[in-house]
Structure formats: structure tokens, C-alpha cells
Simulated scan of single mutants.
Amino acid sequence: MPYGLGLERTANRLAAPNPLWGRAFEEEAARIRAAAGPDVLAIEHYGSTSVPGLCAKPIIDLLVGVADLSVADLHAPTMLALGYDDSGNGGVDGHRIFGKGAARTHLAHFVVHGGAEWVATLRFRDMLRADAGLCTAYEQLKSRLVAEHPADRAAYTAGKSEFILAALA
């Protein structure tokens, strides 16, 4: 897969940091911007692939800022045309998620630009980028969760919640 991306939907696996993940984000963000036009107010790279030096599931997370989540509904056909499928909120309140590929390479999370989800998500990303100790602790937690839940993405994600909330407190 290009840029070392791709993970089966239920699988959990961490990959070594790849300096090409930033390029993979830029290319996909440009495709979404071109297709969705001015309804997309901003797109940010977030998640572990956006943090240099951090092991990550090999899936690029895109935070797509829109004025209202109804904009995501309007652009569902656009995202389908770009090769995504509609994952609803994927169990994440305040998100509308589109996933690309049978082996996921990208997840586009539409959220309200400037809203609580937008702010908290980018704040946590920036904290990881700035604090090596926090980054190391997060990677250790993720490694443990992958070992405990190699085929349960929901349990893996839920296991990170307390850590993230504590960091943001």
C-alpha cells in the first residue's frame, strides 16, 4: 500500500513512524478540498500519524472542519465518489466519519469547525507533539492495548479515552 498505509477494519497493529505520512495526508486533504469546495473550512492531520516519531495504526486521520454536521450529510456522495464509505458517527459523538479502503488507509472525521471536538482533538495532537514524556506514555499505552485487543478496534479506542481525557484536563 502507498506510504505503508492500510489496516483491516477490526485489526489493531502499530507501525513504525513513517515520514511519508504527512505527504499522504496532504494529498488526501487536497482531494477532499477540491471535491467538497468551500463547504470545508479547514482540514487538519491528527491522530498518531500526525505526531513525528510516534508509532501509529497505519491509517491517516483527517479532521474536516465544517460549519455544521449537516454539511457532511450533503457531501456523503462526494466522499463516496472519492472511494470512501459512510461509517456514520463510528461511535464518536460529534463526528461524521468516512473510511477509505477495505483495509483502511484514511478516516475523514467531519466535525464542527471551532467546536468542542475540533478544539480538543487538535489540542491533544499538539500536546503530543510538544511533550516527549506524554508521547512516550501514550505510545506505551497504545502498545499495551494492541496486545490486549489485537482484533477489537472499539476496545482499543475505548482504552485510550481515560488517558486522553486526563491529558486534556
Rank of each mutant, 00 (worst) to 15 (best):
A120N: 05
H149F: 15
I164T: 06
D68M: 08
L7Y: 02
A34T: 00
M1C: 00
D93C: 00
R144E: 15
L165T: 12
Y84W: 15
Q140N: 06
G6Y: 02
P38G: 07
L82N: 09
A67T: 03
D126V: 03
Y46P: 05
A103M: 01
D39A: 10
I43E: 14
Y84E: 06
A130H: 14
Y138W: 11
A24K: 07
G159W: 05
L74C: 06
D85T: 15
I60A: 10
A155D: 11
G99Q: 12
L63R: 02
G91I: 00
A116S: 09
Q140C: 00
E162T: 10
A158R: 07
R23Q: 14
V51Y: 15
L74G: 11
W118T: 01
A147Q: 08
L168A: 01
V92F: 13
H75E: 15
R153W: 02
D39E: 13
L20Y: 10
E26C: 02
T105W: 08
V112K: 12
L74M: 06
G37H: 02
L54K: 07
T136K: 08
T121V: 02
A166K: 10
V112G: 10
G90H: 09
D68Y: 13
L145D: 07
L165S: 03
R125T: 12
A34G: 00
A35C: 07
F25N: 10
E26W: 09
A42Q: 13
M1P: 00
S50Q: 15
V111C: 11
A11P: 04
L69A: 03
V40M: 09
P52S: 13
S87M: 08
E139R: 09
A155P: 03
G90E: 09
L107G: 12
T136D: 14
R125M: 09
I164R: 03
A116M: 06
M127A: 12
A24D: 12
T10V: 03
A132L: 08
R125G: 10
A56F: 09
D93F: 01
L69R: 13
M79C: 13
F25V: 03
L82A: 14
H149V: 06
A72G: 11
G37D: 05
R96F: 10
T157V: 08
L128I: 01
T136R: 15
V111S: 06
A36C: 14
E117L: 10
A34K: 03
L82F: 10
A30S: 13
R104H: 10
A167C: 04
Y3W: 14
G99N: 15
A30M: 04
K142I: 01
A81W: 11
L80T: 14
L5C: 04
Y46K: 03
R123M: 11
L134P: 04
S70G: 10
W21I: 04
A36H: 06
L74R: 14
E117F: 10
Y156I: 00
L7F: 01
A11N: 07
L134K: 07
L82G: 11
C135E: 08
L145M: 07
L5T: 00
N12W: 04
E139H: 05
V112I: 11
K160L: 03
G22P: 04
S70T: 09
V71Q: 14
T121G: 05
